[in-house]
Deep mutational scan, measured.
Amino acid sequence: RSTHNEMEKNRRAHLRLCLEKLKGLVPLGPESSRHTTLSLLTKAKLHIKKLE
């Protein structure tokens, strides 16, 4: 059980790190620190579409 908890903790930490990296790559506007994961991913998707 503790192994599972540790793996889950590591998974969440990795996900958080990846989202922070994404936040640095996507133009978010003036309220960049107030975005939810969903809004960050939505803006990333729109940004990628613009680049295509």
Rank of each mutant, 00 (worst) to 15 (best):
R12T: 09
L25G: 01
L40I: 13
A44H: 00
L40D: 00
L41Q: 01
S2P: 02
N10P: 15
S33P: 13
L25H: 00
R11E: 02
K45E: 00
E20I: 01
K50E: 03
R12S: 05
K43V: 02
K9S: 10
K50T: 05
R12V: 05
N10F: 04
K49H: 01
E52G: 15
E6N: 13
L28Y: 05
S32P: 11
T42D: 12
K43A: 06
S2H: 12
R12K: 12
S33E: 06
G24T: 09
L51W: 11
H35L: 12
T36N: 13
N5S: 12
E20C: 02
A13I: 01
S32G: 12
R34G: 09
E8M: 05
E8Y: 07
K49A: 06
T3A: 09
L15W: 14
C18L: 13
H4P: 13
I48V: 11
S39F: 04
L38F: 13
R11P: 14
P30K: 08
H35A: 12
H47A: 15
A44Y: 02
K49Q: 03
N5I: 10
E8C: 06
K21M: 01
K45M: 01
K43P: 02
N10R: 04
K45Y: 03
H35E: 09
V26P: 00
K9W: 04
H14F: 05
T37K: 15
L25W: 13
L19P: 00
L41R: 01
R11G: 10
P27I: 05
S33H: 09
I48A: 05
E6S: 13
I48T: 02
M7H: 11
K21H: 03
L51C: 02
K21F: 04
H35K: 15
S33T: 13
E8N: 14
K9T: 07
H4D: 14
T36W: 14
L22M: 07
T37F: 15
K50P: 04
R1M: 15
T3L: 10
C18S: 01
S39V: 03
T37G: 12
T3K: 06
H47Q: 15
S32I: 10
T37L: 14
R34I: 10
L51V: 00
C18A: 08
L41A: 03
H35T: 11
L51P: 05
L19R: 01
L15V: 11
H47S: 14
K50F: 09
T36S: 10
L22D: 00
L17C: 10
E6H: 12
C18T: 02
L46Y: 11
L38E: 06
L25V: 04
H4T: 14
H47M: 15
L22W: 01
G29K: 09
H14V: 09
E20M: 04
A13D: 08
A44W: 11
L28N: 07
L25K: 07
L25F: 07
S33I: 15
L38P: 11
H14G: 10
E52I: 11
P27Q: 13
S39M: 01
A13L: 03
K43E: 00
L51R: 07
K23D: 00
G29P: 09
K49M: 05
K45P: 03
S32K: 14
A13G: 11
S32T: 04
R1N: 15
K21G: 01
G24F: 10
L28D: 00
A13Y: 06
S39T: 13
R11C: 10
G24V: 08
L28F: 14
L40S: 03
T42P: 02
T37Q: 09
L17K: 10
K9M: 07
A13F: 07
L28A: 08
L41F: 08
L19A: 03
K45H: 06
R12Q: 04
L22T: 00
K50L: 11
L38T: 10
I48R: 03
K50H: 04
S32H: 09
T3D: 02
S32R: 13
E8F: 11
L15T: 05
H47E: 05
M7Y: 03
K43W: 08
N10M: 03
L15P: 03
H4Y: 04
H14L: 12
L25P: 01
S39D: 07
H14I: 12
L38H: 08
L41H: 00
H4S: 13
L22V: 05
E20K: 03
G24Y: 06
L38I: 11
N10Q: 08
V26T: 05
H35Q: 15
T37M: 15
E52P: 15
L22G: 00
A13Q: 07
T36P: 12
T37D: 04
H35V: 09
P27K: 15
L25M: 12
K49P: 08
I48H: 01
K45W: 07
N5H: 08
G24S: 14
P30V: 15
L17A: 10
E20Q: 09
S33D: 09
K49T: 01
T42K: 14
T42W: 04
E6K: 12
L19S: 02
G29S: 11
E6Q: 12
E6D: 13
T37S: 14
C18H: 02
T3Y: 07
K21Y: 06
K43T: 04
H47V: 15
S2M: 13
G24M: 13
G29D: 08
K21A: 03
L40Q: 01
H14A: 03
V26W: 14
E20F: 04
L40N: 02
L19Q: 00
